[in-house]
């Protein structure tokens, strides 16, 4: 219980300072404050995806259904954060580039991540038998994850026509963060991670209770 209280207090302080401090990137102006929220969301999205793949590998090795549950919950949360990151990213793009969507490489990669999550859930929905569902979706999640390095490291360097606003994004990565701004940013990263872990644990508990209920109904 106590860590939720700490989280509440720290999160409030973080949100306050994210608006009280001067904008992190003077050139872009006030809209650059979104980076305190957008980057942690994108970070959780990738973490969740990696966790989902990790549990998928664990399932294929151990064949225990709890790993499949965890992989699915991580994917679900990853999908939510992925949507949030896409929406905040599009808002930022509208303000700075004048368009919500322009197939910048980062927008492309997050779009494909969303598609992968979508396909993963579509696949899970289409398989009835539990073990079959677990094994096949685990294979798919690993297979899809392999394409991500292509997406993030290779394609952006190859298709320059796809990212006319590259300068803003690469500046984004090299944000001149120091002092108070970097403190707020990294605490935002840490706090969002704690929120994710909390949600993940709730998801695992709910799944466990649902399994118990199903077992009792069977008897």
């Amino acid at each position: 219980m106590w860590y939720k209280l700490v989280l509440f207090v720290l999160m409030s302080i973080m949100i306050y300072f994210s608006f009280a401090l001067p904008a992190p990137q003077q050139q872009i102006g006030e809209s650059s404050r979104i980076f305190y929220y957008h980057i942690p969301q994108a970070w959780i999205c990738v973490i969740a995806f990696a966790m989902s793949m990790f549990y998928s590998i664990m399932y294929l090795r151990k064949k225990e259904i709890k790993y499949d549950d965890k992989a699915a919950i991580a994917a679900k949360l990853g999908f939510i954060f992925c949507v949030l990151a896409t929406v905040t990213g599009a808002m930022f793009a509208k303000v700075t580039w004048g368009m919500y969507w322009n197939w910048d490489p980062r927008q492309t990669s997050i779009f494909i991540l969303l598609l992968i999550y979508g396909a993963y859930f579509a696949l899970r929905g289409a398989i009835e038998v539990e073990e079959k569902k677990a094994a096949l979706s685990a294979v798919y999640s690993i297979f899809a994850f392999v394409t991500v390095p292509f997406l993030i490291f290779i394609v952006p360097r190859m298709v320059p026509s796809l990212h006319p606003n590259d300068s803003i994004i690469s500046e984004d990565l090299k944000f001149n963060i120091e002092g108070a701004i970097s403190l707020v940013f990294f605490s935002a990263l840490a706090l969002f991670t704690v929120v994710y872990i909390w949600l993940f644990n709730i998801g695992v508990r709910v799944q466990l209770l649902m399994r118990k209920q199903l077992e009792e109904e069977d008897f």
């Binding site: 992968i116 899809a144 394609v155």
Partner: peptide, 13 residues
């Protein structure tokens, strides 16, 4: 549906 996310990078290139 399931192939497309994997093929999209390939198709772009």
């Amino acid at each position: 549906v399931v192939s497309f996310p994997i093929l999209m990078v390939l198709l772009m290139v």
